[in-house]
């Protein structure tokens, strides 16, 4: 970030920032504020007992654990995919690269139905796993698979550019010092990638907690076992319990906001570090 001191000569600050803030307020902030106002209809103890009832707690557990595992698996395989796409040459690479974006574009309901059809006990893969006693659809594993699908592009697309820009010299130096390939990876490459990987993981994780469309088809929706938090919001809505629904929504909103804020601060600190180097 060079030349930041003399930025005043560029025009359009008031206009662009003003528009940005106005737009964000109208589209994002005011609507989200509605959740707060609606929740305010509840007394504190009502709010607390709603968001900490046994089923809701169980659903946080399901949502957070499956999102965490999905995020973790995506971090591992997302890194692998990014690595392969950036560093190696093989036929059909362009095609594979495009395939990564597909989960962004496919309607989540279609993804859910398709994944359920494949992993159900009579599906293509489910029927192979059934004799082994592995149940994928209608279990937490199924939810995790749906979330892996949803979150994969986030990891690949955050890691890819960093891997691309990584200097050959650092690795070169490690090799000169006699480090083995795997050791170079652990000691040199991975620390460099860690912030991007963490960001990708966190995004996939945050997206996973809120995902609804694809998960309801594959989860089986068993209370206390495979019931996710967004489904509970829907359930409350369908019983005309708006205040209860918005109370849970509020908890999810705050968690999402905090997670994103942490990511952005992390990113910002990292940028500062590299700039000051």
């Amino acid at each position: 970030m060079k030349g930041s001191k003399s930025r005043n000569i560029l025009p359009g600050f008031g206009l662009s920032l003003g528009f940005t803030l106005f737009y964000l307020s109208v589209i994002v902030l005011i609507p989200l504020a509605a959740v707060f106002f609606r929740t305010a209809e509840l007394s504190w103890s009502e709010f607390w007992s709603t968001v900490t009832s046994a089923r809701v707690i169980a659903s946080y557990k399901v949502s957070f654990l499956t999102s965490f595992f999905a995020g973790f698996i995506n971090a591992v395989f997302g890194l692998l995919i990014a690595w392969v796409l950036v560093r190696y040459r093989f036929p059909g690479k362009k095609l594979i690269d495009s395939l990564v974006d597909l989960p962004f574009a496919l309607p989540t309901a279609v993804a859910g139905i398709a994944l359920t059809a494949i992993y159900a006990p009579n599906g293509w893969i489910g029927s192979l796993l059934e004799p082994l006693g592995v149940k994928v659809a209608y279990s937490p594993i199924g939810i995790t698979i749906a979330l892996i699908f949803i979150g994969l592009p986030f990891v690949v697309r955050t890691v890819q550019p960093v891997l691309q820009d990584m200097e050959k010299e650092t690795e070169e130096a490690a090799v000169m010092l006699g480090a083995y390939r795997l050791r170079t990876f652990w000691k040199v490459v991975l620390p460099e990638l860690a912030p991007a990987l963490l960001t990708g993981f966190a995004l996939a994780f945050a997206r996973g907690i809120g995902e609804y469309g694809s998960v309801v088809f594959i989860s089986g929706n068993m209370p206390l076992k495979t019931e996710i938090t967004p489904l509970l919001i829907m359930t409350k809505l369908e019983q005309y319990d708006y205040a209860g629904a918005t109370a849970i929504a509020l908890v999810m909103l705050i968690v999402s906001f905090l997670m994103l804020l942490i990511i952005n601060l992390l990113q910002w600190r990292m940028n500062r570090r590299t700039v000051s180097d």
């Binding site: 359920t116 059809a117 159900a120 006990p121 009579n122 599906g123 659809a137 209608y138 309801v216 088809f217 089986g220 929706n221 068993m222 209370p223 489904l231 829907m234 359930t235």
Partner: peptide, 20 residues
Amino acid sequence: VPVLDSGARGSTTTFVERGI
């Protein structure tokens, strides 16, 4: 009950199409 769908049609699909 192994699967608790959110609607009647979902349950029918689970029973008929998924064979559960």
